[in-house]
Amino acid sequence: MTQRRSVILDLCVQAEFHTLLLLSLYLLFAGHNQPGGGFAGGLVASCAFGLRYVAGGSSALSRSISIPATTFLGVGMLFAILTGCVSLLTGHEFLESAIFSADLMVLGTVKTSSVLFFDIGVYLVVLGMSLLLLQQLGGADGTDPDEVQP
């Protein structure tokens, strides 16, 4: 699979990769008011990396991202849980949300909720999950299952 690389596909993927990542971030941040959210965002980002895999195989995938996928998982979980714990520390219930409005000058006023951080955690976990799936089942670790085929 890795030998037959098409230049056109490669280029398309390059272009689309970043578009998809941007889209995923949009979904993440817009989710509270529009369809979307951390899940959908994370999944779109996963699709971006999936495309990389389809185009370039597992080596391209590991080149495009240097942090181990497990770290995404761990950090994502930590993010989500700590969001809950913060409210616990401030004397509220676990996972209790607070609404912020921030004046970002040029971009105008943004009203958002603390659960955004929670959603970022979700995003990271979903991303880490799909990366790990692609790396493992796709055989990126030198334990290529093809070698055991008779």
């Binding site: 989710g31 008011n33 529009q34 959210g37 989500a80 979700v122 979903v126 880490g128 999950m129």
Partner: peptide
């Protein structure tokens, strides 16, 4: 503070479920 009610339920009203759900994903993978 959200208009998308489903998303608000998922991350806020029942955010605890979602926490469990990402844990399942992490463990499975």
């Amino acid at each position: 503070g959200g208009n998308n009610v489903v998303n608000v339920i998922v991350v806020d009203f029942r955010g605890f479920d979602t926490m469990g759900e990402i844990v399942v994903l992490a463990v499975a993978v």
